[in-house]
Write a protein that binds this DNA or RNA. Structure first.
Length: 83
DNA sequence: CATTTGACGCCAA
DNA sequence: TTTGGCGCCAAAT
């Protein structure tokens, strides 16, 4: 069985272009609807470019953060019309 | 086992 | 609408 972080990474990697999920949604898909905290923590430590972590945002619509610059994340989201 | 950290979520004021 | 405060969980120490 994959670790919680492996599930999260897999789910995030499956996000298609133009699609966006919230940390809570990712946590729910990972099996723990209340582990949204851990989700953010995992993504922050993950520097794998294969993971479109910029497609994961907060429930409020805020970007949250990005390991390569929040501006980049905002730009990508606006460009893809994911938000 | 106890604490700390962190890209969160929700509610009250 | 904006803050502050509390609760939540996984991994690291």
């Amino acid at each position: 069985m994959a670790s919680f972080q492996e599930k999260v990474l897999l789910i995030v990697s499956r996000i298609k272009k133009g699609q966006v999920l919230t940390y809570k949604q990712v946590a729910q898909l990972a099996g723990n609807p209340n582990a949204f905290r851990a989700v953010g923590n995992i993504l922050s430590k993950n520097y794998n470019p294969k993971i479109p972590c910029h497609r994961v945002i907060r429930s409020d619509g805020a970007i949250g953060g990005y390991n390569r610059g929040e501006k980049k994340k905002i730009f990508l989201l606006k460009k893809e019309k994911a938000i």
